[in-house]
Design a protein around this nucleic acid. Structure first.
Length: 419
RNA sequence: GUGGGCGUAGUGUAGUGGUUAACACGUCAGGUUGUGGCCCUGAAGAUCGCGGGUUCAAGUCCCGUCGCUCACCCCA
């Protein structure tokens, strides 16, 4: 049955049976953040649209065609969270977090909205876990974020991942590189795809990751950014690589790795699963040393990553990773009559206060039906209350696994279940 | 935004123009006297995504629309 009104395109209901996957990922992420001392931050679901335009970039696809933009009743131009980093940086400035010991380490688990055509692993509302380390330009912090990301996948049990690493320089060396890139493309524009012709003008870095066959020759011969890095950037990059190596995290330097957000400087990275496919990137990040200044803060460096929870779960399922066992229902209370139900209701309440989980059956249904229910609820014990028990103030406790049972005074139920 | 595939009960499927749309799982109720898991019986549950068209007749053909999906674009 389809309701008259369905969930909007590209969104999904996450039903109870899916929640264990989500809990598994979120809890692992939280635990890891505790280890590294990243503290949680939550920012509003919508922001002034200018926040994303200024940071992500006016020419980026995210801003040009994927943002959910709307005006509120006061004619404010707002946008649903298109990305996680800019809002966190905005909050950093707005609350004077530069007065705290640097770097400030923050994490978030939040929905992100992009108007895009949905497909496997791509949604209009998806969820990202991300971290940001703000206020420290050291290469070790770049590596630290990579370590958190890599550890996350490791703890979750994801295997076969590849870390791609690159540097896209800074304000000093990027112009030189872009110039070289443009020069390289100058006499090839008639041979590359239309998108690339536009990119050459608007966003030349993106030329490098075009997948069109006709553009591959041009890309193959293109200069690598790593050959154009200024001394400071080259030094930074080589340190990042050293740190990452010391962590034992395998990586490949991919000179064609570029990101779709304009705020990145120097280090950029991306993690992809072995099983390539459309939306294969599972997590990505990089350094954004100019971002805070762009939105009115003092020049402040930062690094971070975001990883898509839906994509993580997709890969966990593909790899048959098994979830930690769910906690069982301790007691299902079966009651044979309306009077017994009152007694059962109180018993269940007491059991919960004693730290156990308990559910009461429907006294309208037969004992047999309630027992079936207890079985399918995967209860450890069924506590049966009928007229006999009611009269004696006792409960028949049946262990479902082996069928053994005994009748005990009410007060002995909780201790009996624990034993 | 571009192109391809798909859309039948809660779920997974069968049914490729012709009587009351089938099967499995699940749900609910029974299988006598207060008890689950296996087994048996029965019931409920589908205006075949929605709208229009072709036809004597459409779940089955055509168009549109919505949604899912795959590739592209892009991204997590």
């Amino acid at each position: 049955m389809a309701p008259d009104i369905q969930a909007p395109r590209g969104t999904q209901d996450i039903l109870p049976e899916e929640q264990p996957w989500w809990d598994y990922v979120r809890e692992t992420a939280r635990r890891l953040c505790g280890e590294f001392r990243y503290a949680q931050i939550e920012t509003p679901t919508f922001e002034d649209v200018a926040l994303f335009k200024r940071t992500v970039g006016d020419t980026s696809d995210i801003v040009q065609k994927e943002m959910y933009v709307f005006q509120d009743r006061g004619d404010q131009e707002l946008a649903l969270r298109a990305e996680g980093t800019a809002p966190v940086c905005r909050a950093y400035i707005e609350h004077g977090l530069h007065n705290q010991p640097q770097p400030v380490r923050l994490f978030y688990i939040t929905p992100v909205y992009r108007y895009d055509r949905p497909q496997a692993g791509r949604y209009r509302q998806h969820h990202q876990f991300g971290i940001e380390a703000i206020g420290d330009a050291s290469a070790s912090v770049d590596a630290e974020t990579i370590e958190v990301l890599w550890r996350l996948y490791e703890e979750l049990g994801l295997t076969g991942l590849t870390l791609n690493l690159n540097s896209i320089g800074d304000a000093e060396c990027r112009p030189r590189y872009l110039e070289a890139l443009r020069a390289h493309y100058a006499d090839k524009l008639d041979r590359v795809c239309r998108d690339c012709q536009a990119r050459a003008e608007r966003n030349p870095l993106r030329l490098l990751d075009c997948k069109n066959p006709e553009c591959q020759d041009a890309i193959a011969g293109a200069p690598a950014f790593t050959d154009f890095l200024c001394e400071a950037c080259a030094d930074h990059f080589s340190q990042v690589k050293d740190y990452v190596e010391s962590l034992g995290v395998p990586y490949v330097v991919n000179p064609r790795l570029v990101r779709g957000l304009d705020y990145y400087t120097r280090t950029v990275y991306e993690v992809r699963p072995a099983e390539e496919g459309g939306q294969s990137t599972v997590g990505a990040g990089g350094r954004y040393d100019g971002l805070i200044e762009q939105i009115g803060g003092k020049p402040t460096p930062g690094v971070g990553f975001a990883t898509g929870i839906e994509r993580i779960i997709l890969n966990l399922k593909r790899q048959d990773v098994s979830l930690p066992a769910a906690s069982p229902l301790d007691v299902f209370v079966v009651c044979a009559s309306a009077a017994a139900r009152v007694f059962a209701f109180k018993l269940a309440s007491d059991l919960r206060r004693a730290g156990l989980s308990a559910v009461v059956g429907d006294s309208q249904r037969s004992l047999k039906a309630q027992m079936r229910h207890a079985g399918s609820a995967d209860a450890t014990y069924a506590a049966i209350i009928g007229d006999r028990e009611l009269e004696a103030g006792s409960v028949t406790l049946k262990r479902l696994a082996d069928g053994s049972q005994e009748t005990v005074p009410v007060g002995d139920v909780a201790p009996g279940v624990r034993a």
